[in-house]
Design a protein around this nucleic acid. Structure first.
Lengths: 161, 161
DNA sequence: CAGAATCATTCGCACTATGAATGATTTACC
DNA sequence: GGTAAATCATTCATAGTGCGAATGATTCTG
């Protein structure tokens, strides 16, 4: 706890000996993620969707999942939450629940046309926001950022692949 | 916007005409931020701190703020939340509340030595996590990521300066 | 020297997400 | 083959988080 070189902590707004908290990846990703997430949430409000709904839509759009529990694991939330998310999406006509004939305990969630529409609308909003955020970057920088964040995501256990 | 080499975006088993949601900056930042934030939260649990507390500590460590309301604006939360965050940090001995003699409505929040210690401990945890996340990157990549995220942060209204 | 404005604080409320029961269905074992 | 354990979706009660509207103290304005 006290193995830090003294003189490291220089109060006000001076140069730090090593990186200060605001200069860490963790801090940057955390704050940026929160801000960007909030802004995105504001834009999909008109669709009666919240980020978690979009997460479920996205997962369903990527492929079929055996159970809602797998889905829950994928999204990193409790299975009971998947139920209420699916409830809402179903009420919007974005997905259908069908009993799996092979295993009638399972409910197979399938995107409807409306679901694909909503997903496309969300993608459009995200893409627009992307443009606003990266307007000051040149194309190589954008590519590098995209690639690096992708590798971070897989490394952090977020399997897009 | 669609000048991406095809074959780049291979979700699970499909290829989209344009970029899919999971490939947007917004989505990546949102999910990464959430995951990394949660992991960070787990590591500072032993210090009896949560990310929001660290945010307040960080803000206080960066400079003096006139009012708690300015602080609230800085953190993007309601002033009433700053009160409870400060309550907890005060109970940990991390900060002191002193009435501003110039304007006795205001409470000036000041980090104690213990507060600086906690901030340093959080920085250490974040730095460790940084290392784990970026272990597979080479130094130029790390620098580029750091720089780009920094520019995004300022552009997004997160004044680190 | 009143009244409006600003500060920190408290309180009640809404929302989110979780874990523990519940009931239906399937699998495993003897 | 039939019973017990496991697994699934769902409901329910609950904890935690953060906000907005009052409250009381203090300062600014005319």
């Amino acid at each position: 706890m006290n193995d830090l070189p003294e003189g490291l902590i220089t109060g006000m707004n001076e140069v730090k000996g090593s990186a200060g908290l605001p200069d860490t990846l963790v801090f940057r990703l955390g704050t940026l993620g929160a801000v960007v997430g909030d802004r995105f949430a504001g834009r999909i409000e008109r669709l009666d969707l919240k980020p978690k709904h979009v997460g479920l839509l996205t997962a369903l759009g990527q492929g079929s999942f055996a159970s809602q529990q797998d889905l829950a694991g994928r999204l990193g939330v409790a299975p009971s939450l998947v139920v209420s998310l699916a409830d809402h999406l179903e009420s919007l006509g974005a997905l259908r629940r069908v009993r799996d004939p092979q295993d009638r305990r399972r409910q197979v969630l399938t995107l409807t046309d409306r679901g694909h529409e909503l997903l496309a609308a969300c993608t459009a909003e995200a893409t627009t926001l992307d443009g606003e955020l990266t307007a000051h970057l040149d194309e190589p920088e954008r590519r590098a950022l995209h690639a690096t964040l992708g590798s971070l995501a897989t490394r952090a256990g977020l399997s897009t692949a």
